[in-house]
Design a binder for these strands. Structure first.
Lengths: 119, 119
DNA sequence: CTACAACTTAGAGCCAACTCTAAGTCAAGT
DNA sequence: ACTTGACTTAGAGTTGGCTCTAAGTTGTAG
């Protein structure tokens, strides 16, 4: 598919898609006869994973490192697994922290609702 | 306390403390005879709350809006409560999303550990 | 055959949130 | 009196992650 379809499918702008390719997150994107990028379903799956890492707080630099390991094939599986384990651990900690944050916010909301009742 | 003690207490750099004051997050910070900022324990509590909002994804612009309502006194309690309720709702949704993300990452890790076993 | 939309590139611009620099003031210690 | 070091300011610079511009090429419809 062309960049327009791909950007619709991934919900990235075409600008961002080109940016990701330029910085090395998207590798081996083929071109058609007139030099336009041609994306596959597999590229969509890969972007979905990039987004998951990004949305869980991994900087693009970290995702790039993963992408480079991935490009080198199966021999880097262990390294990639290690990266994901470290990341998952941080994510778990972050979720716990956010649950505490939520609780504290809810306490403050309760405090406000008491203030308002008295007003 | 002076800016150094305050930055240690809040774990913000002195640069960031000044930046927060300049942009309006920190209001009514008094000065000593030589023009240096003088912070109180209450300022530490307030920064802790700023950090909670920030760490849960509220942009400084939003926190600034809250700070301005807060400065106007008790009459804005309801507005502030509304802000916190909206924010807490988004946070709750985000936690749910991150829990799903974590699950998916863990599945991928399991997949990797199978790949490695076979290798 | 020409208009027009969609693509291409390199590189500039933008935004949030800091982070630092330069030039200056001030208080405390020797 | 002088050095040292912490503070002050306005404003410039940095970083991450896009977002856009300009100039050019290509494919399709009228």
């Amino acid at each position: 598919m062309n960049i327009k379809k791909f950007s619709e499918a991934t919900k990235l702008t075409a600008y961002t898609v080109r940016y990701y390719e330029k910085m090395g997150l998207l590798k081996n994107i083929s071109r058609n006869s007139s030099g336009h990028r041609w994306f596959t379903e597999q590229d969509i799956v890969w972007v979905a994973f990039i987004k998951r890492l990004k949305d869980t707080g991994m900087p693009l630099e970290g995702i790039l490192k993963y992408a480079e390991l991935r490009e080198q094939g199966i021999s880097t599986s262990e390294q990639r697994m290690k990266m994901l384990q470290d990341h998952a651990l941080k994510l778990e900690e972050n979720i716990t922290e956010q649950q505490l944050n939520l609780k504290k916010l809810q306490q403050k909301i309760t405090y406000y609702s008491d203030v308002i009742k008295v007003q």
